[in-house]
């Protein structure tokens, strides 16, 4: 069962900007991403929006398929900066590994 963490957005501020709530889930980023299929990075951004902290940690390997090419950020109609959100999640996961 998935749980949500209402404080996750606050926790994430240490690693990333707070643009995730700008995203309205249009899927442009997932359509244009040359590297990852299966709704990436849209799904990860949705997890951030709803506070699905554990889901991000469970699926964290997927984050490193992103090479920070910036095409998603460049084409995002909401300026939600998906590339930077993914980079922020990488930082969050690395810090989490090192704490554990």
């Amino acid at each position: 069962m998935s749980t949500i963490n209402l404080d996750f957005a606050e926790e994430l501020k240490e690693y990333s900007g707070d643009t995730a709530l700008e995203c309205f889930n249009c899927g442009t980023c997932a359509a244009i991403c040359p590297l990852v299929h299966d709704n990436f990075p849209r799904r990860m951004i949705r997890y951030v929006q709803v506070g699905a902290r554990e889901k991000i940690l469970e699926n964290s390997d997927e984050l490193w398929r992103c090479l920070h090419c910036g095409l998603c950020t460049h084409t995002c109609p909401r300026e939600a900066d998906p590339g930077e959100i993914i980079l922020g999640l990488k930082r969050f996961v690395v810090a989490n590994w090192r704490r554990s």
Partner: peptide
């Protein structure tokens, strides 16, 4: 420059 660490998320 250390850029690979930045891209990989090892901010520290």
């Amino acid at each position: 420059s250390g850029i690979l660490l930045y891209d990989m998320g090892d901010q520290k």
